[in-house]
Design a protein around this nucleic acid. Structure first.
Lengths: 212, 212
DNA sequence: GCGTAACCTTACGGCCGGGTAGGTATGCTC
DNA sequence: GAGCATACCTACCCGGCCGTAAGGTTACGC
């Protein structure tokens, strides 16, 4: 038969990336459960057993997606926020890189991330990632505090860092849902809310609940 | 047969509440998909068809859970944060009520909420609830701003409100994951982060990105 | 050129779990 | 105590989708 093979044979590494691309796309659009392996395979231009051969079961595939995207993001941020810069500069650069990344991947990363938070099997995976991030932020705040000769309880620090990260994630969602919005501008707004708040705290200004 | 009916017959309203209790419990523990209607029925001490007869399909059941819990929470907050109070007082009372509620329901509300964010069918439902909340917060900020004779773009307001709500949700997650933590204290910390930040903004202090 | 390894396919098994059909008991009304 | 609505159950169906068995085809090494 002279029929040229309708689709080309490709080396494993290439196919894997195509599959991951397809998987991210389908998982994002449908959600983990509603996504079918058949659809992912079809979208990758390949047949299902190939996916199983290369990336393993459905859960493993999802985790693989998560890891690839998370790694990309982490690199983007780490490359921007050098540790020797002053705290506000670091925070600003980190935020800008983060929102830049999310903006560029609109319905890839944010949606995937949102998925993972709910589903039991991935909650742990995510919790780890977030914990590392929170730790970095907390470390940054602590560093800035000590530079001012002040100090704060560990839990206080953790909670503030957590709130910061939460607010940022939340705005990432917002950004993913507003295709017309500008990532840079969003980062600025976040910086305003975060830094002016944190800045006050750094200078020892605190708020006290009214009595009774 | 003198066998007294092993389990009692109860009026519909009561059974429905029992079912909802069971559903919240199981959905929280397993997640929407992993939860089976059989387990929910069993946990409610009733058979499956009853659940379908009273609360409808699985999705409808989940939405019903969401609604009941959301309504309870809304009432708790609305009862605490009277609209004629000054902005900081309102925010404080709202936060306190919110964290109090979450703390009291630990693995009910927060987990359910977390579930709903990821799953397609409920995203809309949730988006609506959150949108209303964001609007309230934005309105509060706007009110405070006008009282100071200042004004801010609508999008700016929305984004800040969104960040605030996001940070709060995030701390709710944190609280749900830390059984030993004190809701009141958490509310105070949130208030610090939120109000000192927002307060600065209200007074016209803004942060500008460094050139280049 | 020929073996062999890697790439790729079509087709199917099997199970889990949502949803329902049909029938029984119980208590309330008159 | 007849009649009726409502509470309740056992058993079953059936469709979707994950995961795999078994076999074809292309390219590369020697």
């Amino acid at each position: 038969m002279s029929t040229p093979p309708a689709f080309k044979r490709l080396p494993r590494a290439v196919r894997e990336q195509q599959m991951l691309d397809a998987a991210v796309k389908v998982f994002s659009r449908r959600g983990f459960h509603a996504a079918s392996m058949d659809e992912i395979a079809e979208d990758a231009g390949i047949s299902k057993p190939m996916v199983y051969a290369y990336l393993g079961t459905k859960e493993e595939l999802f985790v693989a997606c998560l890891h690839r995207e998370a790694t990309r993001m982490t690199h983007a941020i780490a490359g921007a926020a050098a540790p020797e810069l002053p705290a506000d500069e670091r925070l600003w650069r980190g935020l800008r890189a983060f929102f830049g990344f999310v903006g560029a991947h609109r319905d890839g990363w944010a949606v995937l991330y949102r998925q993972a938070r709910g589903e039991q099997p991935f909650a742990g995976e995510l919790a780890g990632m977030r914990a590392r991030l929170v730790e970095v932020v907390a470390g940054m705040l602590d560093h800035a505090l000590r530079a001012e000769g002040r100090e704060v309880g560990e839990t206080d620090l953790e909670v503030v860092a957590y709130a910061l990260v939460g607010a940022t994630e939340s705005l990432a969602d917002w950004l993913a849902d507003h295709p017309e919005a500008d990532p840079e501008k969003t980062a600025t707004r976040m910086m305003n809310a975060a830094w002016l708040g944190a800045g006050q705290l750094l200078h020892g200004v605190t708020w006290h609940p009214p009595q009774a």
